[in-house]
Computed example of a mutant assay.
Amino acid sequence: MKSTYLNLVLAAAMLTQGGINVAQAAGAPMVTFIATPQQLSVNQSASKTVGVSQVGGQSAQVLYGDPTKPGLYTVLLRLEPHKRILPLSHPDSRFVTVLSGTFYIGFGDKYDQAGLKALPPGGIYTEPAHANHFGETRDEPALVAITGYGPSGTTYANPADAPKPGK
């Protein structure tokens, strides 16, 4: 656990201002560096990042590995304020850490605001494979780190809720 957390922190630092802006291949030697959530820059559209909700107002950066292939990966996901993620699941189990802001998460096949739990920075949750979950941000953006073992993907509980390309 300590090693996984250390690797996550080190991988997250890849996005420090002026730092490396490309993903590190899985299995490659990991470089040592440190960053705070405020130093991370996540500004690439999430629209082409596998394993995230694809909701407009998201930015994502693959830090390590490739979520489309078998193996360990880590993705940073930034959600703008007032974004809602409707119930969805992923084929792989994942571990999520809130790095900044407050992220509200719940589990189930239908969106239920009463079932949301507020997770401040340092909050964690798991996304078991194929478990439908939903979430939102409120008045502030949130930055989360998602680590899983791919290949990943996203399936909405109600296919009509899936964002359309370009929206």
Rank of each mutant, 00 (worst) to 15 (best):
K2L: 11
Y5D: 13
L6G: 06
N7D: 15
A13I: 08
A13C: 10
M14N: 10
M14G: 10
G19R: 00
N21P: 04
V22T: 15
A23Q: 06
A25Y: 01
G27C: 05
G27N: 03
M30C: 10
M30T: 13
V31R: 00
T32D: 09
F33Q: 12
I34D: 10
A35F: 07
P37E: 03
Q38N: 08
Q39L: 05
V42R: 01
N43V: 15
S47M: 08
S47E: 14
V50R: 01
G51N: 04
Q54W: 12
V55D: 05
V55N: 03
G57V: 09
Q58H: 12
S59F: 15
S59L: 12
L63G: 06
L63N: 10
K69F: 00
T74S: 14
T74E: 11
L76I: 09
R78K: 15
L79D: 15
E80Y: 12
P81A: 15
K83I: 15
L86W: 04
L86Y: 09
S89M: 11
D92K: 01
S93Y: 02
F95H: 13
V98A: 04
V98K: 00
L99T: 05
T102F: 04
T102Y: 07
Y104P: 07
G106H: 01
G108N: 03
K110E: 12
Y111D: 03
A114E: 14
K117E: 14
K117W: 04
A118E: 12
A118G: 11
G123C: 14
T126L: 13
P128G: 06
P128F: 05
P128R: 01
H133Q: 10
D139N: 14
D139K: 05
E140V: 10
E140I: 08
L143W: 03
V144F: 02
V144C: 03
A145N: 03
I146N: 05
T147E: 14
T147M: 13
Y149F: 14
Y149E: 09
Y149K: 04
Y149A: 09
S152G: 07
T154Q: 02
A157M: 01
A157H: 00
P159Y: 05
P163N: 13
K164Q: 14
K164P: 01
G166A: 03
